[in-house]
Design a protein around this nucleic acid. Structure first.
Length: 638
RNA sequence: GGGCCCGUAGCUCAGUACGGACAGAGCGAACGCCUCCUAAGCGUUAGGUCGAGGGUUCAAAUCCCACCGGGCCCGCCA
């Protein structure tokens, strides 16, 4: 977009000037000046060159600035000044800059990012909730981070597969089956209670209480686990049905939050298709997995790797496979290191119409398999998994590198810190709390359900919306309230740095004002209202009218709009959609200041009015785009 | 014992990746702004030894070192 063009012009002119004045300038560092009066872009070139040239930084800056001024003018560079401190400061040629920007964006249509990165096939794994409970806010952080990353990568032109891994053969599922089968707990949720929530809140927690009272019950769990792993028999079939019901309920929540997936990967299929076996053989052959003959791991197949520190067991002495080991063939499949043995079937149609596929352990009988998108075989795999599993993810990454025979780094772990409960929120669950936060614990029922938070948010938003629009019908108010609730919730989880733990506080998460999702929707709606009232959807601009945009708030908004692409590139570089969230908030804030500072529709100067209107349209186009990446719905009225 | 992460205003956090000019928001506090495009907004004021100490540098919240405080991981659990 425009600002990057300005940057490259500034960079080129500085390099040219350095050549002419005889300075050895290898790279041009560009920073934004501390305040706009100094310029729009700064380069500390004088400071950089002072030592080798044995001159004062200010002198060098002056020479460079003069050389640039003497050179032929560049399109977007309006002025160059040397600062005595040694900076060369560039000023944007606002007439041309604003005009060109508004020509491409001022009609409020699609945003052209102008990025041409190499298109990659990327597999992004996220959500991955055990199918034995409803989503809690910790799962939501994973989903929001992952889904926003999927959307951002796609927006940058990559071919992205969104994967959701279903651990259908683990202990947590077995616990629920034990409860329903051996403790006489009802197989049906009470009226009005979602099945995932019932299994997690009632069955799972009850079973864990019973384990403590009756250690013998653990034997039942092992029995169930064996049956599920075998994949045959009445218990396994029953477990399959329960898992499906829970998953269906979970997906309702995921979809409500705006997440869409391309494929469900089932843990049980990795064993059943023989993919584990194939990879295990390869690991043995390459000496990545070795059979331990002595010590505490005697009889186990382990990975020994200096980078990992302690040895990691992959196969137990009884021949069963540990959890992380199953992640290896899955990861290998993602980046095409193992033959794709999965069959694929349609699982569901998601809201909006996109098909959700599922792996299948066996080819369908009779009818020919349906045509499906190409899964697996990606250039890059990204796993969104909380930081507690960093070590295990490092094991997977290292093993893959050795499988591949090189350090290609095609498997990336996007970690993030957990969500805990604030003191106040934990106390609202009836806990007595000493510390400032409490970690959630599924088996003890210490967590906050996503559905409950969304319902509370929606109700609050509904009342606020109703208050502002008493004449509107229930349907409209409900739609707006839902969009506000999702925006508030997602923004709360995505805006924070992934490396920081969130102490989730229900009360502050309920806010609809300040640094929140609704603030973004509000600024968008205000802009839309200006356009609606103007009666002009595609305001024309000229360089002359664009030159009239001189108010500091106008200039600030133009500049910010033109840097949208940079926030996406940062998000890609750091696998961090927070960059987009931060940008969107700054943008909305710049618009609010613009909105308060100048009038659009009542501006008497027709040219200026038109230029401002084009700016509002450009703002809408970019914010709408960013909101889309964050999984929020831009509404013209709220 | 080994490894990873965090520490910035009363509270919650941006800014740290690539060192740069007076360290920014939100919440909370005080005050102000709707005969004007949505006040879910905007403005003003108050509030900071950037955990503490050394080092590198013309320049450090940012890089390096050891330290303090907090969280997490180091299972033949998932």
């Amino acid at each position: 977009m425009k600002f990057r063009e300005f940057e490259s012009e500034a960079r080129e002119s500085l390099l040219q000037a350095a050549k002419e004045t005889g300075y050895q300038l290898s790279e041009v560092e560009l920073i934004s000046p501390p305040n706009p009066e100094l310029g729009d872009l700064s380069c500390p070139a004088g400071l950089r060159l002072a030592r080798q040239a044995r001159k004062a930084p200010g002198t060098i800056a002056k020479e460079l600035a003069e050389a640039i001024a003497a050179a032929p003018r560049r399109r977007l560079v309006g002025g160059v000044e040397a600062h005595p401190s040694g900076y060369v400061n560039f000023r944007i040629e606002m007439g041309a800059f604003a005009h060109e920007m508004l020509t491409s964006l001022g009609d409020g249509q699609e945003v052209d990012l102008g990025v041409s990165a190499a298109r990659k096939r990327i597999a992004i794994e996220h959500t991955n909730v055990n199918p034995n409970k409803a989503l809690h806010i910790g799962h939501a952080r994973n989903l929001v981070l992952g889904d926003s990353l999927v959307r951002t990568m796609r927006r940058l032109g990559h071919d992205v597969q969104a994967l959701n891994y279903i651990d259908d053969s683990g202990a947590q599922v077995a616990d629920v089956i034990v409860g329903l089968r051996f403790l006489g707990i009802s197989e049906e949720a009470p009226e009005g209670v979602k099945f995932d929530s019932y299994c997690g809140d009632v069955v799972y927690t009850r079973v864990n209480q019973e384990y403590e009272k009756d250690p013998g019950l653990k034997e039942k769990q092992r029995l169930v686990l064996r049956e599920i792993e075998r994949g045959e028999g009445e218990v396994a079939e029953f477990a399959g049905r329960v898992v499906s019901k829970i998953l269906a309920a979970q997906l309702q929540t995921c979809w409500r939050l705006g997440a869409r997936y391309d494929l469900l990967n089932w843990e049980s299929h990795i064993l059943r298709t023989g993919m584990w076996g194939e990879v295990f053989e390869e690991l043995k052959r390459r000496g990545v997995a070795v059979l331990e003959t002595q010590g505490e791991n005697a009889g186990c197949w382990v990975v020994k790797d200096q980078e990992l520190g302690d040895d990691k067991v992959l196969v137990r002495s009884d021949g069963t496979v540990v959890y992380v080991a199953k992640d290896i063939p899955y990861a290998a499949w993602k980046i095409g290191l193992v033959r794709d043995r999965f069959s694929y079937a349609v699982y569901a149609e998601q809201p909006g119409g996109a098909v959700l596929w599922t792996t299948s352990a066996s080819a369908p009988q009779g009818a020919p398999p349906p045509a499906h998108p190409r899964f697996g075989g990606a250039d890059l795999a990204i796993s969104v998994i909380d930081s507690k599993q960093s070590r295990l993810q490092k094991v997977v990454g290292r093993v893959l590198e050795r499988l591949e025979g090189g350090g290609s780094q095609r498997y990336l772990h996007r970690g993030y810190e957990v969500v805990a409960l604030s003191k106040a929120s934990a106390e609202s669950l009836g806990l007595t709390v000493e510390k400032e936060f409490v970690h959630m614990q599924g088996r003890k029922g210490i967590y906050i359900n996503v559905d409950k938070v969304l319902e509370a948010l929606r109700e609050k938003a509904r009342l606020e919306t109703r208050k502002r629009s008493p004449e509107r019908d229930e349907g409209w108010v409900g739609h707006v309230a839902e969009a506000l609730a999702v925006a508030a919730f997602r923004f709360e989880l995505v805006k924070q740095d992934p490396d920081k733990m969130i102490a989730f506080d229900l009360e502050s998460a309920m806010r609809l004002q300040g640094d929140t999702g609704p603030y973004l929707l509000y600024s968008y709606a205000r802009a839309s209202r200006i356009v609606a009232k103007s009666g002009v959807a595609r305001p024309g601009t000229s360089e002359g009218s664009a030159r009239k945009l001189v108010h500091p708030k106008e200039v600030a908004l133009i500049k910010l709009i033109s840097t949208y692409d940079k926030s996406l590139l940062e998000a890609e570089r750091y696998l961090s959609p927070k960059e987009v969230a931060t940008y969107a908030h700054s943008l909305a804030s710049a618009f609010s200041e613009f909105y308060e500072a100048v009038q659009v529709n009542s501006e008497p100067d027709q040219e200026l009015r038109s230029a401002r209107l084009a700016m509002v349209q450009a703002f809408r186009a970019v914010l709408r785009d960013a909101l889309g990446l964050l999984g929020m719905e831009a509404l013209d009225e709220i």
